[in-house]
Design a protein around this nucleic acid. Structure first.
Lengths: 188, 188
DNA sequence: AAATTTCTTGACCAATCGGTCAAAATAGAT
DNA sequence: ATCTATTTTGACCGATTGGTCAAGAAATTT
């Protein structure tokens, strides 16, 4: 009865997200999105409505990706070790300066109060909740107060992600992680 | 023998710096700079040559401002307490979402390797050196290894500055500071 | 007061920004 | 094969980007 799209929406979101992740929202132009997705301006607007709405879908997509790496089961302390090990590995990679799209967006929209800022902060809260859950499980094993430990974890994760953008210093980044991990009696 | 400028260069740099500090380099347009300084485009280019060169002068100016708050003498631990107290006070201020221009610039130019990125990282190193010096003095008093403590200090300062942009949570920010200060046997 | 040098001004530049839209192309239902 | 709903396409929009430049204004030296 009518023509169908030549592309899969999710594939477009995935490609657009990569550009937004690398360059940030404002620094990503429509031309960038066109080049990355292979769609033309009209199709892009026909499908997503605006650059802002497309970004929201990309944020949500990244949120799914992020949640897929949240703690599910197993040893919570081991999860934390693997978690920080990965952050550092990505952090020292010279080709990886993108950080975390959620944190990037929280910072980029910090002095705004629009849908983008709100969405970014909601996703940040989810990331935080993940670490909070892990911290509580680990603390239950060790009979400790988890509130400060939770702050330490999210702060360490944030710091490693952001500082590693401009400082590819494994020792430095590992010290940050170890400072949070020592609460749980382990080190990298 | 010739006409003199109607303005003082330093006053222009100060005003331009405020805009760059609030909005970042790329998000600051020439119109913003014109509005903030009161100069017209021609005068701006006649005086500074380009937006980039103007920004470099602003960065240097901020660097002086930053250095003016570095440790000079007195009790190093007391300096640290005041240092973090101020960071948190500014951090919870709803009208203060600018963070630190040096850290902002390190992040903004993280995936570039131009004069701007270089300059920002050089200034970051100076900030770091300040905290390192203080840490060593304080450690000498207390017979401790200062290397990890130095990392903790700069990481805490960075985290408070950045996280406070989008999270005006005094308790949270204080926990970050206290985590670094506990090494020196004090708390906020 | 005149001469000289510099600063100030505003018009102008090409390029790009996010976004719109009418016409052409096309896939599916009949 | 035809009809129809939808997508694709590329031209076009006004606004803004960073930057240039010639002409006019003005301050200082002589």
């Amino acid at each position: 009865m009518s023509r169908t799209t030549d592309f899969k929406k999710e594939e477009i979101i995935e490609k657009a997200m990569q550009v937004f992740w690398e360059k940030g929202y404002d620094q990503t132009s429509l031309k960038d999105l066109i080049d990355a997705t292979g769609l033309l301006k009209g199709s892009l607007y026909n499908t997503f409505g605006s650059k802002e709405k497309l970004f929201l879908e990309c944020l949500e997509y990244y949120g799914q990706f992020s949640r897929s790496r949240h703690y599910k089961d197993g040893d919570p302390v081991l999860y934390l070790k693997k978690f920080f090990k990965r952050l550092i590995e990505e952090g020292v990679d010279r080709d990886f300066r993108k950080g975390c799209l959620i944190m990037n967006s929280c910072l980029e929209f910090a002095n705004q109060e629009n849908a983008l800022a709100k969405k970014a902060q909601t996703l940040f809260a989810a990331t935080e909740l993940n670490l909070k859950n892990v911290a509580e499980l680990a603390c239950a094993q060790q009979n400790k107060n988890s509130e400060k430990l939770k702050t330490n974890l999210i702060t360490a994760a944030f710091s490693i992600r952001e500082i590693s953008k401009f400082r590819k210093d494994k020792k430095f980044l590992t010290q940050i992680a170890n400072r949070a991990l020592e609460d749980f009696g382990v080190q990298l």
